[in-house]
Amino acid sequence: MELKFYIESGIIESYVLGLVSEAEAEEFQLMRKLYPELETEIEVVERRIERAAFDEAVLPPAEVKDRVMQSFRWEGNGAGAGFGGATADPPPNYTFINIQPKDGDQITVHKNWRLFFIFVVLLAKILLFFAIFYFLKYAQVKEEQKKTGLYYHPSSITVSQVSK
């Protein structure tokens, strides 16, 4: 009974024409799940609207068809992927101009490489910083050792400590 009331409210017509709000659309999808018999009624309404639209069909200018066919011929034959190669069209009546740079001179890479590149550069800078830092440290220590005349090599410490 609730379903009949729902259908009579014209909600299907609103939905088919695209007049429903988001909330109504959500409710509609929920109702479809709850009442699978709604599907038959949706199809009936869609067919009715189709017949209504066909009753006042107007033949579009021929130029429209040419433009439509033209637009996908480009996309179908040009760079060409995407459509499983099913374009068994007659040979195109236009010249295909390749605006890619000359082969072999340039490469194109995925944009994720940018992050990787930035990361590598940063890492290199950090390593360079440490290299200089420790070099200076090392130089400083060596200087001090020279001043105090104290050389200590890790192994010599161990040996001297053991011998004591």
Binding site: E8, S9, G10, E13, A52
Partner: peptide
Amino acid sequence: LEAAMKAFRKFLSDTW
């Protein structure tokens, strides 16, 4: 709007 759509449903089903 709901009243209008109710009428629309009736109009559609009466005509087609």
